[in-house]
């Protein structure tokens, strides 16, 4: 069984906020709620790093542990989802989450007036029937059931934000890290993010050979 994960490659993220926009557009997220956002560390300093953050679909999710109505559940693929019908908007999950993923449509408000919690669903909808109107209104589009991956990752222009089967995603990132061959604060820029030009040429040639072999089969 595949396990779904997000991974953001800070060397490639250019802080374009395309992922944020894609998410808001795909799910028609209400004004004031951001299921995903881009965080920049050392903003303005040479070597600054940006990463795109949303629900990380934790293996041992603290939001699930603190929810008094037990509205969270985890799918077979490790996606942490919640049932808005059971949510009472208490905000415990917001305080428990280290990533600030849970969002409330009414913002900070006293006496439980926050509204139902909203968060990234890994584009996997909710407990309602797949693709139903109710599911879309509460949780947004269910792209996983359509055979697609989260819109944020598919939209990422530099492929900094990776999503999908954790094994494949980690393989992709490992390949990138090996190509870069160096680490540390001094390692940044085009070569670090995409490898040296000769390496890119080698990869292109390898890929062409593979495609020819596949075509010959």
């Amino acid at each position: 069984m595949a396990r779904m994960k997000f991974l953001c490659d800070s060397e490639r993220c250019i802080e374009c906020n395309g992922c944020v926009t894609a998410c808001k557009n795909e799910h028609e997220v209400p004004w004031g709620v951001n299921r995903r956002r881009v965080v920049t560390v050392n903003d303005g300093v040479p070597g600054e790093k940006s990463i795109s953050v949303s629900c990380m679909h934790c293996s041992d999710a603290p939001c699930m542990a603190v929810c008094p109505t037990d509205c969270f559940y985890k799918t077979d693929e490790g996606v942490v989802l919640h049932n808005k019908d059971a949510c009472i908007g208490c905000g415990y999950c917001f305080f428990a989450c280290p990533f600030g993923a849970p969002q409330f449509p009414n913002g900070p408000a006293a006496f439980g007036a926050r509204g139902k919690m909203d968060k990234c669903t890994f584009c996997a909808g909710g407990p309602e029937e797949n693709g139903s109107k109710e599911e879309f209104e509460k949780y947004g589009r269910n792209r996983i059931s359509e055979g697609k991956l989260p819109a944020c990752a598919e939209m990422c222009s530099t492929k900094a934000l990776l999503a999908g089967d954790a094994t494949v995603v980690s393989d992709i990132f490992r390949d990138r890290a090996l190509r870069r061959g160096k680490a540390g604060d001094a390692a940044w820029g085009w070569t670090t993010a995409y490898g040296k030009p000769e390496q890119a040429q080698e990869r292109t040639q390898e890929r062409t050979r593979e495609q020819k072999q596949e075509g010959g089969k």
Binding site: A2, M4, Y73, T75, D76, E77, N83, D85, G126, P127, E128, E129, N130, S132, E134, N142, I144, S145, E146, G147, K148, L149, G164, D165
Partner: peptide, 18 residues
């Protein structure tokens, strides 16, 4: 309108798109 986990279909599969 909620459906149980057993009834819920359409989980991840590596399609050509993916």
């Amino acid at each position: 309108t909620t459906v149980s986990a057993e009834e819920k279909t359409g989980s991840y599969a590596e399609t050509p798109h993916i």
